[in-house]
Design a protein around this nucleic acid. Structure first.
Lengths: 214, 214
DNA sequence: GCAGGCATTCGACCATTGTCTAATGTCGTG
DNA sequence: CACGACATTAGACAATGGTCGAATGCCTGC
């Protein structure tokens, strides 16, 4: 059985470095590379044997954590390891809230990165540093943000389309479903976000850092 | 003939200081004070003899330049002097784009402030420092932002209500106009913002820093 | 296995939004 | 003063959005 691993980062050099690390841990895996979020999204949709996604936090085409949310929406079963430059401690928890399996700093030791990759491939959660919160480990994240995190994959894709200002008809076409279905998803989204129309939904989602660029 | 001057700032001490300056320039004027944007908005609506508004850039209840836009929308005829703490050069031009007559830094000399107040009362544009752009003096501000600046007063109030997620019916009620009129305004707003539905209008407006808090 | 929950799907029906046309009033210009 | 430009108002109609009920399929726990 073949398996493939997607490396999504806009810096070619860093993609190469990550590919090297992947080669050490999983020599049999096919390595896919993407420099933009849409490219990554396309590959994710095509490859059925995808086993892991390594995702840069600041990808062209996405703002904030939208990239994580989008790819996680496309394939909730594929683990995502977020690779960041030098964000704060908070970023790791937020990334997890949006669906990431683990969080790696770019300045981490190569061995740490390889460990995280093999752990994720094995289905385990990498032993990256977690929140430094004192004892309970509970997140004091925005309660609404938590609700965003448990939007279903399809719902998230619909919401991102709404953030693009698209009509239900357009969303239906691009997702290959009927307009009635899009409306049903919108109802579910609005219920989860605790709002009553799509404009409020769009504003809330954007205030949570969800947004895609063209 | 009586005239009144509104001082809108959340810091009571600074309100007092501004009131002192106003007293020097216009001893006859009635001084009104407001600590929040809604309070200021209410006073603006009530007082017909309002001659000038001194507005803090960061007022509770508003984000960015919404406060300027809102008060300017209520009474486009009343000059607004924006008083800021220590914003960049850019802020002055942006404030003007949203309807402010002049821009004052809080660390400015008292004489400068008094000059600006008397100039504004006389109907002139205060000689505060303008953009440092080389020769033409033209603004390279976002072209869409310019369009926001020439929204009519009512249109701006409608847009702010849309940013609050309100329905046309609710907007009509709170503005005391008919729903048909709100729709007409929406059409004009969307044309000026170069979008085709209210969700896009809301997103564009928010991306320009327009937003009111509850 | 099977019962319950949930995601996804959809059509029908009502609500909201947006367009078009047009009337009124105000303001500044020639 | 007359004229044009435009804000404001509004009704009728078309397009879009949102709710309800229901069917299907998947997964989990009993």
């Amino acid at each position: 059985m073949t398996r493939s691993i997607l490396i999504a980062d806009d810096h070619p050099l860093f993609r190469q470095a990550l590919a090297l690390a992947v080669g050490q841990v999983a020599p049999d895996a096919t390595v896919l590379e993407a420099g933009t979020l849409v490219a990554a999204s396309g590959m994710v949709a095509e490859r059925g044997d995808l086993a892991l996604i390594l995702l840069d936090l600041k990808m062209p085409g996405a703002v904030g954590f939208s990239g994580i949310a989008l790819l996680h929406a496309e394939r909730p079963d594929v683990p995502i390891l977020v690779v960041s430059s030098a964000e704060g401690d908070h970023a790791a928890d937020e990334a997890r809230a949006f669906g990431a399996r683990g969080f790696l700093r770019k300045d981490a030791d190569l061995a740490v990165i390889e460990d995280a990759i093999s752990a994720a491939l094995a289905g385990r959660t990498p032993a990256t540093r977690r929140s430094v919160s004192s004892s309970d480990g509970a997140s004091d994240l925005d309660p609404i943000r938590e609700r965003v995190a448990d939007l279903t994959p399809t719902q998230l894709k619909v919401l991102l389309a709404v953030l693009d200002g698209q009509l239900n008809k357009q969303i239906a076409h691009s997702l290959g479903i009927s307009e009635a279905t899009v409306k049903a998803h919108m109802t579910a989204i609005m219920r989860k976000l605790d709002v009553s129309n799509r404009t409020q939904a769009a504003l809330v989602a954007r205030s949570l850092g969800l947004h895609l660029r063209h």
